[in-house]
Write a protein that binds this DNA or RNA. Structure first.
Length: 608
DNA sequence: CGTGTTTGACCGGCGC
DNA sequence: GCGCCGGTCAAACACG
């Protein structure tokens, strides 16, 4: 094996955050030069794509004007003889002129006639509208008076009124769903505190009774994880609920973490002496935790608002089955693909590098990091450049933070955690988690794009969030008229729904909103001022690896669009209703995106 | 001197 | 059983 190959990346997270100059060896320099050469291309591409998206949005409105105009045609005819037309302000003609999309000779004839008197003008309104409806011109309006103006204005205003009413309705619904989510979140937190209290009592009871070796070791480990403070909860729960959730339904603590604790605490420098105890300790701890959770389950609403279904699945399996399930869950990962020039994306957390290896099939080394924001945080990540395109940085996260996160870290953490949770909820909804994941992956719509990928073919279930394509996050801001969401159909499986693909972002946003930060605000609060700004506004994706911006942009876009909140509600409903397998949230959009994820068993996105 | 990185060694899972 | 490989450990080293 190519150990010590020298293909190292200076990736001091702290230094990175502080704009510490990055020192590269010759190979890295080659890589970075290569990437820099490519950067202009990729940046240009991203920018162009963004512009295309914007243009597409701006082009959309005009044709819809026909409908209200026709409505007013009837209206005017009905009042033809009732009231004389008000004086026509000439200046309004310019407004009408702007609507003369289709001019032809007929309109000139009509224009001449319309100049005679108001009644004649009114008479012409009907035919003119008909002509308009069949794509003839509106030039006759250039001499029309206010009656015609009012016709158009009334049409537009009535249409606007309709739209406004619709918007208000959606906003109210949006607010209602937010309230519901907040309440569910609150209930969940309360439930979790109950659980902690219960577990604490249980652990004390077990300890006092002098039960088997596992319990004793668990106590030892728990104390170690909490800085020896004597707290007997498995891990500290953060107030945001995110990490607590992750700890609850996604046992992220790897065996090595146990080994590490054991080595440090007991075996000192003997290194691997505690290795064998790690998984057992964790499994036992996990069983206790799950058992307590199951016992305390109060109902689907509470248990799933943040647990995303994993918590709600009863854990009455035998110990062997539980071990299998836990092994699967422990390995759940979220991989984020993003274009980045930096050796490591700024996700707001602090990382310490603990290893580097050459991975098979990739000339680029894989770096291993663990979170150092809190002692005993089980989160690890692997950073590796894509072999095919070295401008793409693949960051794979495993586990959930056991500590409060700064705002800058919330977006990524919540997104990845939610993605993992989504995956796990799918896995846990079946006795065979992996097969279910495969099914979930395969049954996602083929027409979708590559924002989220679920891969069960890997040794561990992995969700891949592909952020290398800028259109996807931006497309989340498409006007509601181009993004239709239909609400749950109980007879359909969630996995059939394209909205399922939005769950990582949606859930991330939900969790993020829960923490009282908006995506935009978070983006502005980021530690690195150079990476401030709203990605969805204009900043091309992939510049300097501001992945957090990307995520926040996507999540902010979701927040901005009531339809996405509706999708969130639908998704939550889906999970609440059946571990992500009963109800259905459907987001129907035309798609034209391509899939660029190599291991894409299923990809989804909102696209147009 | 404290903190973080580097890197050779080691472990465990898995396939043959 | 053996080798491969991913993942981790920890002594040595670098740096401020």
């Amino acid at each position: 094996m190519a150990k010590g190959s020298g293909l190292s990346i200076d990736s001091d997270p702290i230094g990175f955050f502080l704009h510490k100059p990055i020192v590269l060896n010759s190979f890295q320099e080659d890589q970075y030069i290569h990437r820099k050469n490519k950067l202009s291309t990729s940046t240009t591409t991203s920018t162009a794509t963004s512009m295309d998206t914007t243009t597409a949005i701006q082009r959309s409105p005009p044709p819809t004007l026909q409908f209200p105009v026709n409505l007013n045609c009837t209206h005017v005819d009905d009042h033809h003889s009732d009231s004389p037309p008000p004086p026509s302000p000439p200046e309004k003609r310019t407004v009408i002129d702007e609507m003369d999309f289709f001019a032809d000779d007929k309109n000139h004839v009509a224009k001449a006639s319309s100049a005679d008197d108001a009644d004649d003008r009114k008479d012409l309104i009907g035919p003119r509208d008909l002509e308009f409806n069949v794509n003839t011109g509106l030039n006759l309006l250039t001499t029309n008076t206010s009656s015609d103006q009012s016709v158009v204005d009334d049409g537009i205003s009535s249409n606007l009124a309709v739209l406004h009413a619709e918007l208000e309705r959606m906003n109210s619904e949006n607010q209602r769903l937010k309230d519901m989510l907040n309440q569910v979140t609150s209930n969940y937190n309360t439930l979790q505190m109950h659980l902690m209290s219960l577990m604490q009592n249980q652990s004390k009871a077990d300890n006092s009774e002098g039960h088997g070796v596992f319990e004793g070791k668990i106590e030892e480990k728990k104390s170690s994880d909490n800085g020896g403070g004597g707290v007997v909860v498995p891990r500290q729960f953060m107030d945001l609920g995110l990490a607590a959730n992750g700890d609850t339904d996604e046992p992220s603590l790897s065996s090595s973490e146990e080994r590490r604790s054991g080595s440090a605490g007991n075996n000192a420098k003997n290194g691997h002496g505690g290795g064998d105890d790690g998984p057992q300790l964790f499994d036992q701890e996990k069983k206790e935790f799950d058992g307590g959770l199951t016992a305390r389950e109060e109902g689907p609403d509470q248990s799933n608002s943040q647990g995303w279904g994993s918590n709600k699945v009863p854990r009455f399996n035998s110990s062997k089955e539980a071990d299998q399930t836990e092994a699967t869950m422990r390995k759940a990962r979220v991989s984020v693909r993003a274009r980045s020039e930096a050796p490591m994306i700024n996700d707001g957390c602090q990382w310490r590098k603990y290893g580097q290896k050459m991975a098979k099939g990739n000339p680029c080394p894989r770096a291993y990091y663990r979170c150092t924001m809190a002692a005993g945080c089980p989160v690890r990540k692997q950073v590796q450049r894509c072999a095919e395109d070295r401008t793409i940085l693949i960051t794979t996260y495993e586990g959930n933070h056991s500590h409060p996160l700064p705002p800058a870290a919330m977006a990524m953490a919540s997104t990845t955690s939610s993605a993992a949770r989504m995956l796990l909820s799918g896995s846990m909804s079946s006795a065979d988690g992996l097969m279910n994941s495969n099914f979930l992956a395969r049954t996602m719509l083929p027409c979708s794009s590559s924002m989220a990928t679920i891969s069960a073919s890997a040794p561990f279930p992995t969700v891949t969030l592909d952020l290398t394509q800028s259109p996807n996050p931006l497309q989340l801001q498409r006007p509601p008229t181009q993004f239709h969401i239909s609400f749950p159909n109980p007879s359909q499986n969630l996995s059939n729904s394209p909205a399922a693909s939005l769950l990582p972002q949606i859930f991330g946003q939900a969790l993020y909103n829960q923490s009282k930060f908006s995506g935009l605000q978070m983006s502005q609060d980021m530690a690195d001022p150079s990476q401030m700004g709203h990605q969805s506004q204009s900043q091309p994706l992939g510049q300097h690896g501001s992945l957090t911006d990307t995520v926040s942009a996507a999540t902010a876009a979701i927040t901005a669009d009531p339809n996405f909140t509706a999708a969130l509600a639908a998704a939550i409903t889906s999970i609440i209703g059946g571990g992500g397998a009963h109800n259905n949230a459907t987001a129907t959009t035309p798609t034209n995106n391509t899939n660029n994820t190599s291991n894409a068993n299923a990809t989804t996105s909102s696209s147009n």
